[in-house]
Simulated assay, not measured.
Amino acid sequence: MQFPQIRMQSQMALVGINSTQGKQTIQQPEAELSIQQPKAEVMINRRPPRLTIDQSQAWSDMGLYGALEATERNAQEGEQAWLQSIAKKSQEGDQLMKIEQDGNPIASISKNNAYEPMKEFNVGWIPSHFSVKTDYDPGELNINVKRNEPIIQAQPQKPVINYERGQVETYLRQENDLQIDVEI
């Protein structure tokens, strides 16, 4: 005996998906930056060095004098020579006044005046030791520096973000189906 048979044939539903991806762009503009560096303020105060050389003693030792000193020395030497001349003439006068005493004063005076005394020569142009005096003042130097801080101004920029949304679309690509057959 044959039994009836049921035959089933099914087909599942299929879902289809169409999607477009989202897009995102990010741009970061550069920050606006301003840097200024003021110059440092430098102040220099100085007292210049000073070198003093006094060689008047050396010149004096060599017989070379300045105008004022030479005039003064010549005046003193002239006065001294004048006083010596007066003393000599006075002495010669005293000798002549006493002519009656023994001796021959005229011959003696003539003999003394006939010849000049021998001149002495000595190396007189070498100055004495340490006759040149020096004095040195090194001066002074003061440097003051005032540094100025840099002026920095920064303006940050916000990022520019663009976003396009993606889409997802679903649809039924294949419908479900069920077929039932009965066979005898």
Rank of each mutant, 00 (worst) to 15 (best):
M1V: 13
Q2M: 09
Q2L: 02
Q5E: 02
Q5N: 02
I6V: 13
Q11C: 07
Q11N: 00
M12I: 02
L14W: 00
G16M: 10
N18Q: 14
Q21F: 00
G22S: 11
Q24S: 05
T25Y: 08
I26H: 03
Q27W: 07
Q27T: 11
A31V: 02
E32T: 09
L33E: 02
S34N: 08
I35N: 03
I35P: 05
Q36E: 09
P38A: 14
E41H: 09
E41W: 10
V42P: 08
R46C: 03
R50N: 04
L51G: 00
D54C: 05
D54F: 07
S56T: 07
S56P: 00
Q57W: 00
M62V: 01
G66N: 15
A67G: 01
L68G: 03
R73K: 14
Q80G: 01
S85P: 01
S85Y: 11
A87I: 06
K88M: 09
K88I: 09
K89H: 14
S90M: 15
G93Y: 10
D94R: 12
Q95D: 15
L96V: 12
M97Q: 07
K98T: 05
I99F: 14
I99R: 03
E100L: 11
D102H: 06
G103P: 02
P105A: 04
A107S: 02
S108E: 14
S110R: 08
S110W: 12
A114Y: 13
Y115H: 13
M118E: 10
M118Q: 08
M118S: 12
N122T: 10
V123N: 09
G124L: 05
W125K: 06
I126R: 04
S128R: 12
S128A: 11
F130M: 10
S131N: 14
V132A: 10
Y136W: 14
Y136F: 15
E140M: 15
N142Y: 00
N142E: 12
N144S: 06
R147T: 10
P150F: 08
Q153E: 04
A154R: 09
Q155A: 06
K158E: 15
K158Q: 15
P159W: 02
N162T: 07
E164C: 04
R165C: 04
Q167V: 06
V168N: 04
E169Y: 04
Y171C: 01
Q174D: 04
Q174E: 13
D177R: 15
L178I: 13
D181L: 07
V182M: 08
